[in-house]
Design a protein around this nucleic acid. Sequence first.
DNA 1: CCCAAGGGTTGATCTGCATCAAGGATGCAT
DNA 2: ATGCATCCTTGATGCAGATCAACCCTTGGG
Lengths: 246, 246
Amino acid sequence: MNTLAKNTLVKCGECPIRHRAVCARCESDELERLESIKYYRNFEAGQTIVWSNDKMDFVGSVVAGVAALTQTMEDGRTQMVGLLLPSDFVGRPGREGSAYDVTATTDLVMCCFRKKPFEKMMAETPHIAHRLLEMTLDELDAAREWMLVLGRKTAREKIASLLAIIARRDPRPGLSPGVEASFELPLTREAMADYLGLTLETVSRQMSALKRDGVIILEGKRHVSVPDISRLMDEAGDDSDGGYLV
Amino acid sequence: MNTLAKNTLVKCGECPIRHRAVCARCESDELERLESIKYYRNFEAGQTIVWSNDKMDFVGSVVAGVAALTQTMEDGRTQMVGLLLPSDFVGRPGREGSAYDVTATTDLVMCCFRKKPFEKMMAETPHIAHRLLEMTLDELDAAREWMLVLGRKTAREKIASLLAIIARRDPRPGLSPGVEASFELPLTREAMADYLGLTLETVSRQMSALKRDGVIILEGKRHVSVPDISRLMDEAGDDSDGGYLV
DNA sequence: CCCAAGGGTTGATCTGCATCAAGGATGCAT
DNA sequence: ATGCATCCTTGATGCAGATCAACCCTTGGG
């Protein structure tokens, strides 16, 4: 247990980013064995990676870009239940199919492992299973934190919460003076609405309101700069230290 | 992986109910080792089991009664993020504290394992870790299914969804003719509201409405009978087969 | 060059649920 | 029996966010 601190990132072969270790003791021979079964896949923005209930014959992690897990009711109402940013893990070892639609919301690169050999390795290598348990517990915490957002926060707080997550996970230090974070929104207004349990009109209005009030600076429709991150966190009503979310 | 089918229940020592196996291959010596570190704890309705951020030195499962995981914002808004029914697992191996308040909503019996020895056993016994991963994935599915409820369902659908969960998990076959399920609500109206992201007044009104419309039969404030379960599922807007939830 | 499609904004109006408020039922302590 | 607390119900009113609708901007294709 805990062979690796919670969010430790390790270099995985030639992956362009350091991503969360699946192989708990990197640099060791597990990593090499992982290398031997891994491959890359590219997706375009909007493309579906797996349909819910479809068989999913791989697991992997996001290397670049953003993907979304969504659930849909018969009448078309949809709810995003997970947002996958670079280093996030996808797939359910020991499960046949996907429980959700997985779609790329931007162009996407994934580092995949074929599921069968990955599961075999997992069975032989205890700390991979432990590491996966760690990661699943993180996802569970994120999902539960999001339940608070969905159940109890106002539209403005929801938007601020989402922006805070993205800002935190995209750690580009301030370029211009007076800007503490700056990023490109990887989601359309509609996708944001689906994540937040709102309509796209409400998302648009609240984005305008946050801009008007100086909480964010919008350049174009997608580029967001945050002059004061703690101000943004306040708007999100965030009690938490922002530990686990997504 | 998958040494045990998803919801297989096994007899664990003298526990009065068959609960979900922590020890994946029951009847084997892991079970005996588990027996040697286990103990029971009783709680009264309303009692807090662990406070969020407190150190939690045990893991375990609910034997009888119901417990709730809740998160609270500084201003007092609270959201229940998990409902623990008999056989559900509590605790986060490899984690220090609890991320949520855990409280008993009814009188409660838990079967506990001290955390340290449990983790030690987990490290030595691979399929315990696998089993725990299975269970955590189930919880993750439940949390995500609940995100759809919180984000996209109406008050009436939310109530119906909650009743459907409880009815499904409390499999007492119909006593009177024309009654397909019947149970005692383990939650106050306020607790239901906290789970559903509503106010207690709205919960009360929708319960009355479901009663008026013949979807449920209310005897007193807490006893619920369901004449037609598929009708209730329809009201819940449930597309799913009701696979994972709670 | 024009047109269509996708993404975004903003306004007017409607409505589901929250909020505020009062009162009923039950149980328990004095 | 009386008082008080907890839990629940129901009514009146208000408002946040949904819905309906118009319009803008950008991109890309004939």
